[in-house]
């Protein structure tokens, strides 16, 4: 049978520290108190939205280091990405730190993609400590993908609100957890959705693909997890994912949630189908989820970062939007104590 892509990390690295920086709207949302830092005007003291996004990354990364009393020299590499052209949000934001840098583009799945690569490199003794960073900013994303900020248009009910926020995590080969124990890279899945205002429907098939692969080869069942979290499928993608998985024989309803549905109060904050952007899952994982893992409320988290692989040009040319979903399993206990079915031959050596 074809390798389904599950990677069990032999020496699961610890998530040593994490930090989440958000804008005002996110701070005003239901998870507001769980984020480390917020700005009142979303400008973060900068004169452009793009600089504001970079500043968020700088703040998140700096705060993450401070929380675990590390310095720049203690970090061997950074895996980072954002939604801006050529990933300038990350490259400018992390410029000051002088650390080997890998720029990633995984659209809104970047938190999962960067965390996966950081965990794989640390878990395989390539690095001792590696950071995963991502960000998105409502205004810089609107400018690049949609309309000018002050343009008077109406949003469709299926549209989502790009989160203003940045998440940073430090993965290390020493420490007592929470651990990144398993990862599964996503496969691009495209089911013909061309509507850029319905990302949830475009990304849901990728989430379903990754979760189906994971459950069928990991030996786990949905109930083994305290929470299964997708990145930013929003209301529509959430429902589609749940139903399609159910029809494949996996009932995730009792433990399933989506970061895009958690970060805002859908009715009061007028975000239509929910939150989106790298910062959506980035801040929710680095803030509230990590907090609950440390408090012992969560012991086993399955995080599936979801991304829509498109550009304004590809959408205008009528190209369908492909989705991708990267999976990361975070556990507060070491794999010896993990629930596991039949061991697959160590695909990670």
């Amino acid at each position: 049978m074809k390798n389904k892509g599950l990677i069990r990390i032999q020496n699961p690295p610890t998530i040593l520290s994490s930090a989440a920086v958000v804008g005002k709207k996110e701070h005003d949302g239901p998870l507001g108190a769980d984020f480390d830092l917020h700005a009142e005007d979303d400008r973060f003291g900068m004169d452009t939205w793009e600089k504001a996004e970079s500043e968020m990354q700088r703040l998140a990364f700096g705060l993450m280091l401070k929380k675990c009393r590390m310095r720049e020299d203690d970090v061997d590499a950074i895996f980072a990405g954002d939604l801006l052209n050529q990933c300038t949000g990350s490259s400018f934001g992390l410029l000051d730190f002088g650390i080997p840098y890998f720029g990633l583009y995984g659209a809104c799945s970047t938190m999962a993609e960067s965390l996966m690569l950081a965990a794989l490199t640390v878990g395989n003794n390539i690095f001792n400590r590696a950071a995963a960073v991502c960000s998105s900013h409502f205004c810089s994303a609107e400018r690049q993908f949609r309309f000018p900020i002050e343009y008077g248009g109406q949003r469709t009910p299926t549209s989502q609100w790009t989160v203003t926020g940045s998440g940073a995590m430090l993965v290390a080969n020493d420490g007592g957890g929470p651990y990144v124990t398993e990862v599964m890279p996503g496969i691009s899945v495209q089911k013909g959705i061309t509507d850029a205002n319905n990302m949830g429907a475009a990304m849901a098939p990728a989430a379903v693909d990754t979760l189906t692969r994971y459950f069928s080869c990991s030996g786990t069942v949905p109930e083994d997890f305290d929470v299964i979290l997708t990145g930013d499928l929003g209301a529509i993608g959430h429902d589609i994912t749940m139903e399609l998985l159910y029809s494949s024989g996996f009932n995730i309803r009792s433990v399933y949630n989506d970061c895009g549905l958690m970060i805002y109060s859908a009715k009061e904050q007028d975000v239509h189908a929910g939150g989106s952007g790298c910062g959506c899952s980035g801040t929710v994982i680095c803030g509230p989820v990590m907090k609950r893992l440390r408090q012992g409320i969560y012991k086993n988290v399955l995080f599936i970062g979801t991304g829509a692989l498109m550009s304004p040009g590809s959408v205008q040319q009528g190209m369908p939007i492909a989705g991708i979903a990267h999976l990361v399993r975070i556990s507060s206990e070491l794999p010896g104590t993990l629930v596991s079915g039949e061991e697959r031959g160590g695909s990670n050596g």
């Binding site: 495209q190 089911k191 013909g192 959705i193 429907a201 098939p205 379903v208 189906t212 209301a235 529509i236």
Partner: peptide, 17 residues
Amino acid sequence: MNLDANTYQVYAKGYGK
């Protein structure tokens, strides 16, 4: 998930307000 693209598009249209 074995839905082909056309079936999925019709299916997804049924979701969302």
